[in-house]
């Protein structure tokens, strides 16, 4: 529906030099070689991270969620930690625990796996709400409070959480308020036939992953973050975003509208998306491109007509005219 492989704009070269488009291309190309046929999801995932947001991957097992998280960590040159969530997990298993050190005669905080730049929170819906909220709090605050002290988490700090929508028994689906903490929710889906053939015939992905060098030199990630923040959002685009928010709140189609945080998320994601397209200003197309991922998990259809998130977002987009 939406334009995502952007129309080949002939960029004003002088201006493009300011934008680290070569970094973006390098990232996308390298990731595309491992994650086959998932350009759009990859692009969204990168956009999510460039917008410094957390990502929720919702899909069936075995479609490459973990691989994706690995690839992102590798390419961006981030420390990577995987946490497999289970129902018997306690908050301390994630955050860390204070242990009495007899030598010092004092409690000493042993940081948990959360103290890592990129965390893959696998099957987050298997953990109890208490454990979930411990992680989500850390995601929001970007620090840990324990024993009356706060421990800052490393920067950057990303959480890529996965959940299996098909699992119903013994799971605790994230409530809306928690979902709102994720900048984007994306699904991967099955690869198409050609991509799957390549996958089946080719090398083991894990081996490729192990030998994958970071695509970014130290400091280049910060350049990208800065560039994403500098992407211009024109007043007209803010009008459009506000129109979208207003429509989601006022329309009878939705029982739950988009929050101001969703609005901020939309702007940040659109900026990152524009950056990946090599533009220094965001366009309505960028907003529309990220909207399903940004708003899909935040919108609730009104009444009891079941509607897929993508349908809801499409309805929202088509209900808001773009001025001009």
């Amino acid at each position: 529906m939406l334009l995502w492989n952007h129309y080949p704009l002939n960029l004003n070269l002088k201006k493009a030099c300011i934008m680290p488009i070569h970094l973006c291309n390098r990232l996308l190309d390298a990731a595309g070689e491992i994650i086959l046929g998932k350009d759009r999801a990859l692009r969204l995932a990168f956009a999510c991270l460039l917008a410094r947001g957390h990502l929720l991957l919702e899909d069936l097992p075995g479609v490459g969620k973990t691989t994706l998280a690995h690839v992102l960590a590798r390419l961006l040159g981030l420390e990577f930690q995987r946490i497999q969530f289970t129902s018997d997990m306690l908050p301390a298993d994630i955050l860390g625990v204070s242990i009495f050190n007899q030598h010092d005669a004092a409690f000493r905080f042993h940081p948990g796996p959360v103290f890592c730049q990129l965390i893959l929170a696998d099957e987050i819906n298997r953990a109890t709400p208490k454990t979930q909220s411990a992680l989500l709090e850390a995601m929001e605050e970007r620090q840990i409070s324990a024993e009356g002290r706060t421990w800052p988490l490393p920067t950057p700090f990303f959480v890529i959480a996965t959940q299996n929508p098909a699992d119903q028994i013994g799971t605790f689906p994230l409530p809306e308020s928690q979902l709102d903490r994720f900048l984007m929710r994306i699904a991967l889906g099955y690869p198409d036939r050609a991509a799957e053939r390549l996958l089946l015939a080719g090398e083991d992905r894990r081996e490729i992953l192990a030998g994958l060098p970071p695509a970014l030199a130290p400091g280049e990630l910060d350049t990208l973050f800065a560039a994403a923040r500098q992407v211009h959002v024109a007043p007209r685009l803010l009008d459009y975003i506000q129109d979208l928010l207003a429509q989601s709140r006022e329309s009878a189609d939705f029982s739950l509208g988009l929050s101001p945080r969703a609005g901020l998320a939309l702007i940040a994601a659109a900026r990152a998306w524009a950056l990946l397209a090599g533009r220094e200003h965001a366009l309505p197309e960028d907003v529309q491109a990220v909207l399903p991922a940004v708003a899909g998990h935040r919108l609730r259809a009104a009444g009891d007509t079941p509607a897929s998130p993508d349908d809801l977002v499409r309805r929202l987009i088509e209900a808001v005219p773009l001025r001009g």
Partner: peptide
């Protein structure tokens, strides 16, 4: 041009 269609999308469709 559809009411919600952005300029790039529209341009691409026209092209």
């Amino acid at each position: 041009r559809l009411s919600w269609e952005g300029p790039l999308d529209f341009g691409r469709r026209v092209c």
